Computed example of a mutant assay.
Amino acid sequence: MADIADSPLANQANKSLEHENVETGEPKMRARDVDVYYGQKKAIDSVDIDVYTEFVTAFIGPSGCGKSTFLRALNRMNDTIPSARVTGKIELDGEDIYASGMDVVQLRARVGMVFQKPNPFPKSIYDNIAYGPKIHGLADAKPDLDNIVEKSLRRAGLWDEVKDRLSDSGTALSGGQQQRLCIARAIAVDPEVILMDEPCSALDPIATAKIEELIDELRGRYGIVIVTHSMQQAARVSQRTAFFHLGNLVEYGHTSDIFTNPAEQRTQDYITGRYG
């Protein structure tokens, strides 16, 4: 497999090796034997994955392979699709998120989602951030909300760009700024995990670089899972990579191993461009 080991992808993946050797605790999220159905069609077949706060986890694979479907299962977004059904077990801090007593609204505050296309609310920049803390009862007084808004925008790397126009509409920002606003909005409710479904696919290279830098800065504070069509991006930002194909999890492990010495032939074929 020397053709992979010497590739630019492998070089990018190896740059994150120092992030892989930290001590890990229990997984923040644990998925075991997870199937997802749309009606009678099985879209995900018996997937096992652990998500750690210490690492960014990337889901890669061809279009239609199930990676976004599985991502949405991690905070029950598939519940909004009438034909969708999930079996198996997905735990957050050891608690089954599909248990009958689970508060789905609270779950989605704990496991936030950033979508492919930036989707700021048609509200001011300030109100985009303050909305979540208000409805979840995290802050009522204006000084508390001000603090949450500033802290969230700073963590998203956006504060210095918007601090003088917080009353402007969030939809007036550039695409890259809108996506960072959506990340700040997710952060504002103090989540434990952030799911990102191709967050850079609609962005230019400069905005993409800023989002990738932000992901690296947030790693360790939140569990982060990113779906990406870009293997280069997975190699740059993640420390764990899961390769999906036709609804199956083919391989999951250290990003450097996936891109330099994959255990499965299908993984090697995908990474070297033989299909996908």
Results as ranks from 00 to 15, higher is better:
residue 186 A to Y: 00
residue 132 G to Y: 02
residue 149 V to K: 11
residue 169 S to K: 15
residue 181 L to C: 15
residue 190 D to N: 12
residue 176 G to N: 02
residue 135 I to M: 10
residue 136 H to A: 01
residue 175 G to T: 14
residue 152 S to P: 06
residue 145 L to V: 12
residue 156 A to W: 05
residue 164 D to M: 09
residue 187 I to N: 06
residue 159 W to V: 07
residue 149 V to R: 06
residue 194 I to K: 00
residue 130 A to N: 04
residue 178 Q to A: 13
residue 172 A to K: 14
residue 142 K to A: 09
residue 162 V to W: 01
residue 140 D to E: 14
residue 161 E to P: 10
residue 188 A to H: 13
residue 180 R to Y: 11
residue 130 A to F: 08
residue 178 Q to P: 11
residue 184 A to S: 09
residue 180 R to Q: 13
residue 184 A to V: 03
residue 148 I to R: 09
residue 191 P to W: 11
residue 169 S to V: 05
residue 174 S to Y: 06
residue 144 D to Q: 15
residue 138 L to D: 15
residue 170 G to N: 01
residue 194 I to Y: 00
residue 173 L to W: 02
residue 144 D to W: 02
residue 158 L to Y: 11
residue 153 L to I: 08
residue 146 D to V: 03
residue 165 R to L: 03
residue 157 G to H: 11
residue 139 A to E: 06
residue 165 R to Y: 01
residue 181 L to I: 09
residue 142 K to G: 04
residue 147 N to H: 14
residue 191 P to N: 13
residue 188 A to I: 03
residue 184 A to T: 09
residue 154 R to Y: 01
residue 194 I to F: 04
residue 140 D to V: 15
residue 195 L to C: 05
residue 160 D to A: 06
residue 172 A to C: 07
residue 144 D to R: 09
residue 187 I to D: 13
residue 158 L to S: 04
residue 162 V to M: 04
residue 150 E to D: 01
residue 173 L to M: 07
residue 177 Q to N: 11
residue 176 G to F: 03
residue 162 V to T: 04
residue 170 G to S: 03
residue 180 R to G: 14
residue 141 A to F: 02
residue 140 D to N: 00
residue 150 E to M: 10
residue 148 I to N: 13
residue 129 I to K: 00
residue 172 A to F: 12
residue 152 S to R: 01
residue 179 Q to V: 10
residue 165 R to A: 00
residue 195 L to R: 04
residue 131 Y to H: 01
residue 163 K to E: 10
residue 176 G to W: 06
residue 179 Q to A: 15
residue 159 W to Y: 14
residue 149 V to E: 07
residue 166 L to W: 00
residue 141 A to R: 08
residue 195 L to A: 02
residue 184 A to K: 05
residue 147 N to C: 07
residue 144 D to E: 15
residue 160 D to S: 14
residue 178 Q to T: 05
residue 193 V to T: 07
residue 154 R to E: 15
residue 148 I to P: 12
residue 193 V to Q: 09
residue 189 V to C: 12
residue 139 A to S: 07
residue 154 R to T: 09
residue 166 L to R: 08
residue 160 D to P: 08
residue 131 Y to L: 02
residue 180 R to S: 14
residue 174 S to T: 08
residue 176 G to M: 11
residue 153 L to W: 02
residue 167 S to M: 09
residue 143 P to L: 14
residue 136 H to S: 03
residue 195 L to P: 08
residue 167 S to H: 13
residue 181 L to T: 10
residue 165 R to F: 01
residue 160 D to K: 03
residue 191 P to S: 12
residue 133 P to W: 05
residue 168 D to S: 15
residue 168 D to Q: 08
residue 146 D to H: 05
residue 187 I to M: 10
residue 172 A to I: 02
residue 146 D to R: 05
residue 195 L to I: 03
residue 141 A to V: 07
residue 154 R to I: 08
residue 173 L to D: 02
residue 148 I to K: 03
residue 165 R to K: 15
residue 130 A to P: 08
residue 161 E to W: 03
residue 177 Q to W: 14
residue 129 I to D: 01
residue 176 G to S: 12
residue 193 V to D: 12
residue 168 D to I: 03
residue 168 D to E: 14
residue 168 D to F: 12
residue 174 S to W: 07
residue 171 T to D: 10
residue 166 L to S: 10
residue 186 A to V: 13
residue 136 H to D: 08
residue 195 L to F: 04
residue 192 E to D: 15
residue 131 Y to Q: 03
residue 194 I to L: 11
residue 134 K to L: 07
